[in-house]
Structure formats: structure tokens, C-alpha cells
């Protein structure tokens, strides 16, 4: 009986601490993000929980890429996890306009903050994202674009 009460008390104590800590963090995030744009919110949660920022590119990619083509994504590092993460997010955000395929060529991009896309069907096509600028190969009729 005494042992039961001690264990019960300890379990409540541990739960109270973790619940209050979680409540504080959630409220803190909510206050910080209230009134921010969607992409700013995505950047914040990605940066906080996953440690990288990629969302600012998506809107731009969505309007820039020729439609109805399949693309392979080239990752910022040769790390398979990062590759997968980019691919998953791009496929989610770009559906149904574009599909990012797995198993295409890997190239190393110089920084984590950059995204390269490569067209599986047209090797001449390339997109390079570097900081806030994207360069599209001139064959596809675009030049240097700046993100909003």
C-alpha cells in the first residue's frame, strides 16, 4: 500500500513536470508563430524540430518548373536521410504538378541551404538553389531568380 502510494506520487510528479514543460513550449511556439506566413511557420518548425530550412524554396519551385515532368532531386549532401527528407517534402508540396522521383543521380551541392533539381528526362535541364537565388539553365528560358 505504501509502495503503491510512493510510485503513484512519483509517476504524477514526473508527468506533471513533463506536461507543464510541453504546455509551455507549445504556447511559446503558438505566440511566436501567430500572424506569421505559412512559409515562415514551416521554416520555424523545420528549423526547430528537424534542424534545416527548405520551405522558402517550394513556392518558387512550384511556379518555375515546367509542368507534367518527373524530376529527380539532388540533395544538399550525399546523406540518404537528407535526400529522403527533401524528396518527401517536395512530393508533398508539389503534388499534383510535379513528382520527385527516387533513384536518380546524386550530386553534391555545396551547402545544406541549397536545393538542386534535375530532370530525369532532360539532362540539360538543371536548377540550382543557392541561398536566396536560383539559377535555371538557359535552355529552359530562365535566368537568375530571387526568392521573395
Amino acid at each position: 500500500m505504501k509502495a503503491y502510494k510512493i510510485i503513484l506520487f512519483l509517476s504524477i510528479l514526473v508527468s506533471l513536470i513533463s506536461a507543464l514543460q510541453y504546455t509551455y513550449e507549445q504556447m511559446d511556439d503558438s505566440i511566436k508563430l501567430y500572424n506569421k506566413s505559412y512559409l515562415e511557420k514551416q521554416d520555424y518548425v523545420e528549423g526547430k524540430y528537424n534542424g534545416y530550412l527548405v520551405y522558402r524554396y517550394y513556392d518558387w519551385i512550384k511556379i518555375s518548373l515546367p509542368k507534367a515532368k518527373t524530376y529527380g532531386i539532388l540533395t544538399a549532401t550525399d546523406d540518404n536521410k537528407t535526400y529522403g527528407r527533401y524528396m518527401h517534402r517536395l512530393n508533398y508540396f508539389l503534388y499534383p504538378e510535379h513528382i520527385i522521383e527516387t533513384g536518380t543521380i546524386f550530386l553534391l551541392a555545396p551547402k545544406l541551404s541549397s536545393v538542386k533539381l534535375y530532370s530525369a528526362g532532360r539532362s540539360s535541364y538543371g536548377v540550382l538553389g543557392e541561398k536566396k537565388y536560383f539559377l535555371i539553365s538557359k535552355k529552359d528560358g530562365a535566368g537568375l531568380l530571387r526568392l521573395k
Binding site: 507543464l20 503558438s30 514551416q42 518548425v45 529522403g84 527528407r85 518527401h88
Partner: peptide, 26 residues
């Protein structure tokens, strides 16, 4: 009171922040 706060925090947070986890996207 703590349970109420938990639910409140989750509802407020869910109505403000987007998804971010791997399997949610994938």
C-alpha cells in the same frame, strides 16, 4: 487543471503551426 491546459495548448498549437514530421509528409 494540468490536463485542461494540455488540451488547450495542443488545440491552440494545432490551429497555428503546420505539419513538420517526416512520416506526416511522406
Amino acid at each position: 487543471a494540468v490536463l485542461f491546459l494540455l488540451v488547450l495548448a495542443i488545440i491552440i498549437n494545432c490551429s497555428i503551426t503546420p505539419i513538420f514530421s517526416k512520416d506526416a509528409f511522406a
